[in-house]
Design a binder for these strands. Structure first.
Lengths: 366, 366
DNA sequence: TTGTATGCGTTATCAC
DNA sequence: GTGATAACGCATACAA
């Protein structure tokens, strides 16, 4: 029995050398086993020496580290992850990383924030590259479990995404961006959308505007709901009645916003200001106004949301609500890593936006 | 002997249930072993059934798939990678994913292209989050080997980066963006920088300009060398002498370009046009001109490079060389995956840029 | 301080 | 068509 085993294993060993089977990086990489053989110490000792355990003599450690160096040893993260139950990777499930979103810095800024945060830790990021076709095969949860990420950040998923609930129900630590849910394994980051919207509208009101319309994103989005509430609160507080027909959805795209705004401005020429739920939609509104011969800000004031880099270059430069997306990503990653570190670390964080005054708003004229 | 083994293993098993040790996702995840036990088939059969091997009966496969479904089974990518020598992940070593680069869509577009390409395959992306501090500890090669990526895309690394050579020397399949090196394991993608620069300058010449300066990036960058050559070729071909003092480096930043341009324009008021190696630097140049009371394009023509989204909103809108960064990323990923698939797949790809005419260039006036 | 033995979850080889 | 079993590279409980 014992003999047979030896025979078999040695046969394998020979085969392995002869046939040079497929292996990582093409050629054979050094393992702790190799170091063990070269130094004469057991793989246990090698492992502990390399991992900085105290119960190994200085001379041994020195020798082992030397050999590791000369062999150009790198630990195998897969093997380590397999036994450690921890991979030091964060999953990123980010919508909007596709061709048509290229003009939208939003996602990139968040990404930079996450990346910078991870760079200061020992985590790497894994970007789940999925499209609608692939999504049908694997749920978000499956992606995370196969890759064994320690936690995941979700950005741009819709509140009614069927897979979202599955992630929330799972026990994968998770941080949501702009979806306010927190529980044992779930946290979130967001900004004060409602209050910011209110501030934006109050700014218009303080300028003397009374006839203020709104171009929102789409109703299912959490941020749209919040921004709408801010708008309506500001209007109500000022004693103005809400006109449902003055609130349209531009689906966060420039084109739809332009079209919606054109109809709005034609049907209700009394409108003197429009609050938009994104800068790109504000751009659409400005284009619509332009085509109708309405000058901004003299005849129409426009406020955006986001403060994308381009907003400062619009004609006229756009007054908008500035969101610090970089910080949002940064906080998201920090929050997640905190959750991974301890049970009772904070589960959410709400950042404050600020009104950026430029030249697209003025007193109502004409 | 045999008995002792059993004793020990069962002790472990008990311990494992009692102490509920740390495990992925908090709770126990189903493995093929569990499926094996529930169905009564061996783990070998389960593995083959799940992986679609033909030598398993239909009824068996059906049963196994059923149980896998109810157990909510997901394969463990770590274990699989360990034995398969393949992880289906591509590494991304991208510089410029940090706070100060937020305004630069360049990186994001490349990323989108890579991401979209990966989305149509079975690869995921791993973003190595490194900073200067961490870089001192681990080389790019070490990062790749630890994570066992199948290949890596390098973007924004400098030609003189000490770690670059190490990656090239390693046997990790690798695609470089804008560094023209190819060998057995190395490929690259780039655009026709030199010819595009030439085209840009020829455009200025055809407008009647003779006194054309250049604001370049920094000398070590491959793209800067190429763009300089395009500039000098165009000048030489037109019979104009090159004035070294008219060629300055703005280090690809708006600020430095602005400063350099200011000095240039003050020292040589005869200059009627400036070719810039990036749009952000062109913006700096335009600001410098503005401050000196030089109007664009009447008194000074400016051409940029990149065609970032904002360029169309500059005042005046910027004439520039349009690079399709999305496509660049897309091709990079495709190239790499092709190399992973077969030995003799193409190793490089050079995309064509195009001149985008806007309003920052005109006939020399004054 | 060091070594032995076992397991992490999967695939591959071989025998039946 | 199915099942033992070795192996991937590493970490760890325990014995020595």
């Amino acid at each position: 029995m014992s003999k047979k085993v030896l025979d078999f294993s040695s046969r394998i060993r020979i085969l392995r050398n002869i046939s040079n089977p497929k292996r990582f990086g093409g050629k054979q990489l050094a393992t702790i086993k190799d170091i063990s053989q070269m130094t004469g110490f057991s793989i246990t000792t090698v492992s502990r020496a390399l991992n900085g355990y105290s119960d190994v003599s200085d001379s041994t450690r020195k020798r082992i580290k030397e050999v590791a160096e000369t062999l150009n040893y790198s630990p195998n993260g897969l093997a380590r992850g397999l036994v450690m139950k921890e991979t030091k990777t964060l999953g990123l499930l980010v919508s909007g990383m596709t061709y048509k979103n290229i003009d939208n810095n939003f996602v990139f800024e968040v990404l930079c924030g996450i990346n910078d945060s991870a760079a200061n830790s020992d985590y790497d990021l894994i970007l789940f590259s999925t499209n609608t076709a692939k999504q049908k095969m694997k749920t978000y949860t499956q992606l995370c479990r196969e890759r064994k990420v320690d936690g995941v950040i979700l950005q741009g998923v819709k509140t009614d995404d069927p897979y979202l609930q599955e992630v929330l129900d799972s026990d994968i630590p998770c941080v949501l961006i702009d979806i306010p849910i927190h529980s044992e394994y779930v946290g979130f980051v967001s900004t004060n959308h409602k209050q910011s919207a209110q501030t934006a509208v109050e700014h218009l009101i303080s300028l003397g505007h009374r006839q203020i319309a709104m171009v929102n994103g789409y109703p299912e989005a959490f941020v749209s709901k919040e921004r709408y509430e801010g708008y309506s609160d500001a209007m109500s507080s000022a004693g103005f009645s809400l006109k449902p027909e003055w609130i349209v959805n531009g689906n966060f795209t420039e084109e739809e916003a332009q079209q919606q705004a054109a109809e709005l401005l034609k049907a209700y020429p009394e409108i003197t200001a429009i609050f938009c739920a994104s800068d790109m939609m504000a751009l659409g509104v400005m284009k619509a106004a332009n085509e109708l011969g309405i000058t901004i800000p003299d005849e129409l004031s426009v406020v955006g949301f986001d403060d994308i880099p381009t907003a400062a270059y619009f004609q006229p430069p756009l007054t908008t609500i500035g969101q610090n997306m970089y910080q949002l990503g940064h906080e998201a990653a920090n929050l997640l890593m905190g959750m991974l570190r301890s049970e009772n670390s904070p589960k959410f964080n709400i950042l404050q936006n600020e009104l950026v005054l430029r030249s697209s708003t003025a007193k109502p004229g004409r």
